[in-house]
Nucleic acid binder design. Structure first.
Lengths: 240, 240
DNA sequence: CGTTCACTTGAAAGTGTTCAATTACTGTGG
DNA sequence: CCACAGTAATTGAACACTTTCAAGTGAACG
C-alpha cells in the first residue's frame, strides 16, 4: 500500500473553515454561515489561488490538498513563507492593503472554500463571535510566524529540517492521519527556500538523517524512523 | 546639540492608538473611545510590559519610548522578535492563547496606553469599524513579520543591518523627526539577536559601513551619511 | 579610581554556499 | 511501452561568510 499523501483531501471537521464558521456561539443561525462556506473551488497543481497585487476580495480556507505562499522581493528574490494544508485560512494579510501581498500556489490538486470578505464583514456585524474567531485566527498566524523567525534566526540546518519535518508530521496528525510515513508535496528547492537553505544543503541533511537512521527517504516519500531522535535534533539537544 | 533619540516621546497623532481609536467612522461618539485610551502607564528601562505566560488582559499602544519583544525557547535560547516605537500596538498575539507569548521589555522610559481587551470587545460590538481597524492592524503585523522572514532567510549580514537601520530611520520619520542622526536604544547584542547575527558580526558590519563612508557610528549614536548607498546595500545591489 | 559590562578587533574554525558534474525522476511523443 | 528531453535531486570540492574563541579597548557607575 502506498503511503497516503500528507495532503490528500480528508475530512477535517475540527479545523479551518469549520473553526472559523462552525464553532461560533451555539444558538447562532448556522444556515447563514452556510452561505459563507458554500462557495467551493478546486485548483490544480501550479495554479495560483491569488497573486501579488491582485485585488483583495476573498479569504480562502483550504479543504484538502496543499498550497505554498511566497513573497516576491523587488530584486526578484523569492521567499517561501509557508506551506499550508487542510484547515488553514489564507489571504488575511491582504486586509490592510486591499491587495494580496504574496503568491498562493497549489502544490497539488487542492480544494478551497472561498469566503468573500464583504460577505464576511456583513455577517460578522450580526455575529460578534465570528469577528472574535477571526481575531483568534490572525493572532495564531502571528504566533506561528514568530516560531519561524526563531527557526530562521537561531537554528542550524539540521535543526531547521528536523523542525520542519516534525511540523509536517504534526499537521498530518491534526488532520486525522497517524502514519509515520508521508509524502512531501513540495520540491527540495521550495523546502530550502522556506528554511533559508540551499537545495544542496537540504539534500545533504536528508542524506545525513538517513545515514543516522532517523529517516527513511525515498525521493518525496519520507518515513520517520526515530521520532525521538528527530525531536532531539529539532530541540538542539546534542545527544542522539 | 545632541541628536534627538529616535524614541523620545513625541506627538504622534497619525499612528498607533490614534490609528486604532480615532480614525473610526466620523459620527461615532468619541468620548466612548476616550475611555479606552485614557488608561496610561509609564515603565522604566528594563521593566517588563508583560511576560511570557502572563494572563492576557490588555493590549498596549506605545505612546513614546521603545520596547523590545522577545521569544523564549524551551532550551533557553532567545529570539528578539521586534523593536517597537510610538504607534505600535503590542499584545495581539495573546488573543488566541489568553496568555502573552513573549516578553515585552522597555528599552528606555516608555509610555503606553493600556487597553483592556474585554472593554475593547464590548465597544467593538457597538462600533464595527473598530473591529475592522483591529483586523487591519493585525493584518499589517502579519505583513511586517513576513518581511523579517525574507531578511532572516535570504539576506547577508550587511543587507540585514542596512535594512534594519533604514527601518529605524523610517520609523523615526513616520513620527515626525527628520534628522539623519539618531540614537539606538538597544544594545548590539539585541540587534544581533534580532537579525540572526552575533554581536561580533554586527560590530564588524558597523565598522565596515563607517569605513565605506555610509554611516557615522559613535557608540549608540548613528548618523546616516549616504542614504542611497545604504539603500543599495539593503536592496542587494552590488554597486556602491 | 577601579570594577564591570558593552563593544571592538583579530585569528582560527566551522557551516553553509557555490560551482560543477552525475544520477534519478517525470512527462511527452513516437 | 520505450526513448528522449527536461527538470529535480544528489554528491563532491573549493570557497566565503559568519561564528567562535580570545584579547583588548572604552564607557558607565559605584
Amino acid at each position: 500500500m502506498p503511503p497516503r499523501s500528507a495532503y490528500t483531501p480528508i475530512a477535517c471537521t475540527n479545523c479551518g473553515i469549520y473553526q472559523l464558521c462552525y464553532s461560533v456561539g451555539g444558538d447562532t443561525d448556522l444556515s447563514v454561515l452556510d452561505t459563507l462556506v458554500k462557495n467551493r473551488k478546486t485548483i490544480k497543481r501550479g495554479d495560483f489561488l491569488y497573486r501579488t497585487g491582485d485585488q483583495f476580495r476573498a479569504i480562502y480556507a483550504i479543504r484538502g490538498g496543499s498550497v505554498k505562499t511566497s513573497l516576491l522581493a523587488n530584486d526578484g528574490r523569492v521567499q517561501v513563507t509557508g506551506f499550508h494544508v487542510a484547515g488553514k485560512v489564507l489571504g488575511l494579510d491582504a486586509i490592510v492593503t486591499s491587495q494580496y501581498n504574496c503568491e498562493a500556489t497549489a502544490l497539488e490538486t487542492t480544494g478551497v472554500c472561498e469566503i468573500h470578505f464583504s460577505r464576511f464583514e456583513e455577517l460578522s456585524k450580526k455575529i460578534p463571535d465570528l469577528q472574535y474567531k477571526m481575531l483568534k485566527i490572525m493572532s495564531q498566524e502571528i504566533l506561528d510566524n514568530r516560531e519561524l523567525m526563531m527557526l530562521l534566526g537561531k537554528m542550524s540546518g539540521e535543526e531547521r529540517l528536523a523542525t520542519y519535518l516534525l511540523s509536517m508530521f504534526n499537521g498530518l496528525k491534526k488532520c486525522g492521519a497517524s502514519s509515520m510515513q508521508f509524502s512531501l508535496s513540495m520540491s527540495r528547492s521550495d523546502i530550502g527556500n522556506y528554511l533559508g537553505l540551499t537545495v544542496e544543503t537540504v539534500s545533504r541533511v536528508f542524506s545525513r538523517f538517513q545515514k543516522m537512521g532517523v529517516l527513511g527517504v525515498d525521493n518525496k516519500e519520507i518515513s520517520i524512523v526515530d521520532v525521538e531522535a528527530l525531536r532531539a535534533v529539532a530541540d538542539g539537544s546534542e545527544n542522539a
